[in-house]
């Protein structure tokens, strides 16, 4: 409607494709392509193999996948609990406390993840809380990093809630706890699921803080991918990356599905 001539529209679409394909689509395709590569001599891989994927099903790679999935699950749920709670508390409190909560819970977004890792390392490397070298410290780092996103999403969803619904529930005689349980939370459910999906995805891909903290027995996928590519095993790295993308997508798709179901209630 803004560009009226068909020729101009075609020109814009062509330019759009010329930008999107090499910048966004091609890189992702190449990772998938490389994950099947056996040898890569010329412009394109010259021999293909599924061996990199077969390796995924066993040993270190499988460990890394399980590690990442469990880390993301724990961190996602913890972040949803803390962030969601804080977001609900922010609504029930005065303006100044709300601004404080907003500021503090968004702060992890501003602080570099590497610094979050460093901070946990500095804080928990000596008694009374000696967590350095444990799984817990990785989980803590992931939770801190994704809590902001959970807080942000739930806070935005609360802002979109129609206050009339809760007010009518209260007007019908429901005490606050019941309003929360029977009205507010069910209404927020789609956003909560979405927030969890986002937290899960971000935790799956978290590298910076993890690089600072990971103990030898808890190597998530991103660390494993870095290790592989660093020693030159690019194709293995690509296969691991595809596994990472695929598992992230599956979870995102699942939460999106849950979300649509929930929003039809």
């Amino acid at each position: 409607m803004l560009v009226h001539s068909r020729a101009a529209r075609l020109a814009h679409w062509t330019l759009f494709l010329l930008l999107v394909v090499p910048v966004f689509a091609l890189p992702l395709l190449m990772v998938v392509g490389a994950s099947f590569a056996d040898r890569w001599d010329g412009a394109l891989p010259s021999a293909f193999t599924a061996a990199h994927y077969a390796d995924l099903g066993r040993g270190q790679s499988l460990d890394a996948l399980v590690t990442s999935l469990s880390t993301a699950l724990v961190a996602g749920l913890a972040a949803l609990t803390v962030g969601g709670w804080a977001a609900l508390a922010a609504r029930g409190s005065g303006r100044r406390l709300r601004h404080l909560l907003d500021g503090l819970f968004m702060l992890p977004l501003a602080v570099p993840s590497v610094v979050v890792g460093l901070a946990l390392l500095v804080a928990f490397s000596k008694p009374p809380l000696l967590l350095n070298g444990t799984t817990t410290i990785v989980l803590l780092a992931h939770t801190v990093l994704v809590t902001s996103f959970a807080y942000q999403s739930v806070r935005a969803a609360i802002g979109r809630l129609d206050p009339a619904l809760e007010q009518s529930a209260a007007g019908l005689g429901a005490p606050p706890a019941q309003v929360l349980r029977r009205v507010t939370l069910p209404l927020l459910l789609p956003s909560l699921t979405a927030a969890f999906g986002l937290c899960f995805a971000l935790s799956m891909g978290e590298l910076s803080a993890t690089m600072m903290l990971y103990p030898p027995d808890w190597l998530p996928l991103p660390v494993r991918i870095f290790a592989a590519t660093d020693r030159g095993a690019l194709f293995t790295g690509a296969a691991l990356a595809v596994a990472l993308i695929a598992s992230t997508l599956v979870v995102l798709a699942a939460t999106a599905r849950l979300r649509t179901r929930a929003s039809y209630r």
């Binding site: 090499p22 091609l26 890189p27 992702l28 190449m30 990772v31 392509g33 490389a34 986002l198 995805a201 971000l202 799956m204 891909g205 978290e206 590298l207 991103p222 991918i225 870095f226 590519t229 690019l234 790295g237 690509a238 990356a241 990472l244 993308i245 992230t248 995102l252």
Partner: peptide, 15 residues
């Protein structure tokens, strides 16, 4: 937006 950043560097290496 949901994908990890390092994937980009990895994939650019293949290009």
């Amino acid at each position: 937006v949901a994908l990890p950043s390092f994937l980009i560097t990895l994939s650019l290496a293949f290009i």
